[in-house]
């Protein structure tokens, strides 16, 4: 089973590299560097302090944005999920807000926060908070009422019910929300950096585009892809595990 998985992944990676190489052959060196050249350039970048300074700036912004998105999203989702009426009213509103292209809010954020860390964080959090809130809200609402009945019959207090029954019961959904929220926060933070920053990987990306530095562009993309894919893979594994555990009882 495990071995099968590993082979699948190797095939996937090889496939991607082959497609990459073919595209490179088709469009040429100036639009898309070859995998080999990209790896070489990326290796060089990884040894460069300039790169790590920017990566550090991005990581810091991402960290703040993640904390706001996760804590805020959880709190909003929980509050709305526990209050049935508010949840019914808020659910379609959240989904509408979620699907509004957030770039339209861009000027407002810039006006409020100015250029720099807070704007990036605000933009990242703005992207991440909705999926976390929506998944948490739905996770709470989808809880089998028999668990609530059981906790009532055991005479649990409200806070005990929340922490020992509702949150664990909704946990698989919440983790799915965190996973989707995580990806959205990375995206939001990078976009924020592309428009509203003077440092960070997003800023490096936009500069590489300006300077038509295809190798740097490709290396950065590769690096970001690997980081995002790894994080997503870990969260996905947790997600699957939790969903499997509660599958039979649902």
């Amino acid at each position: 089973m495990m071995k099968h998985r590993a082979i699948d992944y190797v095939l996937l990676v090889v496939g991607l590299l082959v497609v990459w190489q073919i595209c490179h052959e088709l469009v040429g060196e100036y639009a898309l560097t070859s995998p080999l050249a990209t790896f070489a350039y990326a290796a060089k970048e990884l040894g460069d302090a300039h790169f790590w300074n920017n990566a550090g700036a991005s990581a810091l912004a991402l960290l703040y944005a993640l904390i706001i998105a996760m804590v805020g999203g959880l709190a909003i989702g929980l509050a709305l999920g526990l209050n049935r009426l508010a949840g019914d009213v808020a659910d379609p509103m959240l989904i509408t807000l979620f699907s509004v292209p957030k770039v339209t809010l861009y000027p407002v954020i810039l006006l409020v926060f100015g250029l720099g860390l807070s704007a990036k964080v605000a933009f990242g959090a703005l992207h991440g908070i909705f999926p976390v809130a929506i998944f948490t809200l739905n996770g709470i609402r989808k809880i089998n009422p028999i668990y609530v009945k059981a906790s009532r019959s055991l005479n649990l207090s409200r806070s005990r019910t929340i922490f020992t029954v509702l949150l664990p019961a909704a946990l698989p959904e919440i983790v799915s929300g965190l996973r989707v929220g995580f990806a959205a926060t990375i995206l939001g933070t990078l976009i924020g950096e592309m428009f509203a920053a003077t440092e960070g990987l997003g800023f490096m990306l936009i500069k590489a585009i300006d300077e038509n530095n295809v190798e740097l562009l490709m290396s950065l993309t590769l690096f970001l892809f690997l980081v995002a894919a790894t994080a997503n893979g870990i969260l996905l594994a947790i997600d699957h595990r939790l969903h499997r555990r509660s599958a039979a009882a649902a």
Partner: peptide, 13 residues
Amino acid sequence: VGVVFQEDSSFPW
């Protein structure tokens, strides 16, 4: 008072 419900109410987590 202890109750055992008709539906399965064991906690899957």
